[in-house]
Design a binder for these strands. Structure first.
Lengths: 169, 169
DNA sequence: GTTGGAGTGTCAACAACACTGACATAAAGT
DNA sequence: ACTTTATGTCAGTGTTGTTGACACTCCAAC
């Protein structure tokens, strides 16, 4: 049912997307995201940390010296939410916060040695799954994967994503 | 840095995935998932419901007459967690629960008319974004997207996913 | 037929993590 | 001086996950 053939009307290859195809995309996204977070969640479950800590550590490791405000924009949470997480990470010696030199209002965040170690542990698990998925799927599929995901982002997130991508030249 | 050329050792086109490439995949997944849930979340924010209600409604709509236990396996949460959500949905007349005829331990779940309406509203928003992303990315990219996501799932989830996919022939 | 274990669903209490709102401090910018 | 920006904190609330305890139903062994 609902299986129309693609009848191109214009020169452009217009995609005829049935609700069923879109639904499958939605469900694929749901199940895959569960797999995506499963490994770090398992590791974090044993500690006193959760997914929020993982995200903070990831992006601090990714953009060392970033400010609280910048991190806030990337993560898309409120400062109260982030602060709770950062407070524990700093208290536990995984993250250090230094007052800015030019602008003393800012705090620049960096991972400590211990923080980098945890970041590695968590990322290794997640990267292993991503690597395995990429290998299984092949290079063309990976390119498509990234194209669709980029198209699915909101504008601001796409900016954050690109900025991070380009910064790691 | 960290930019090794692909030095194939076997006949297979071995993929050489740098940590940087994997990291970008991870971040793409993170940002895209935010976009993916943004629209339904916005709609649900106005009501007394959250993302968990959306998921329940989605999969009940997808597999009418399903049992609580089956839904549990699909969603991957505890039955207590699901029950709280189901209770409110039933109380609000969006879902109806009928005792099984053969096995009276089971409850079969179905959307009411009101439930179907809400499901449509939520799905429409999410499908619109998915459709737009799929259109922008093109058919080859979409195929790759699905391939990678499937490879990223855990085994059980892949089963659930396939079962749902096939049931909608 | 009764009993005990497995399957299923429900209620209660707690933890993690998001939110809003209000407020304090310090440093820039005008 | 006044305003804005960046950050941190306290208090309160809501959603959604968890465990623990318990009731009902089925089925199979005794």
């Amino acid at each position: 049912m609902d299986r129309r053939p693609s009848s191109p009307s214009t020169g452009e290859a217009l995609l005829f997307l049935t609700d069923e195809q879109l639904r499958q995309g939605i469900e694929a996204m749901f199940f895959a995201y569960r797999g995506f977070t499963a490994d770090p969640d398992r590791i974090l479950g044993d500690m006193a940390y959760g997914r929020a800590h993982h995200r903070a550590i990831h992006f601090i490791g990714r953009a060392p010296g970033t400010t609280v405000n910048n991190l806030l924009n990337i993560l898309g949470v409120t400062k109260q939410s982030l602060n709770r997480v950062l407070r524990t990470l700093i208290a536990d010696g995984l993250v250090e916060s230094k007052v800015g030199r030019q602008d003393k209002r800012e705090r620049h965040l960096n991972l400590t040695e211990a923080g980098r170690t945890l970041e590695q542990t968590l990322s290794d698990a997640q990267r292993a799954r991503m690597r395995s998925a990429f290998r299984d799927a092949g290079p063309e599929a990976v390119a498509g994967f990234r194209t669709v995901l980029e198209a699915m982002m909101d504008g601001e997130m796409r900016s954050s994503y690109s900025r991070l991508k380009d910064s790691a030249s």
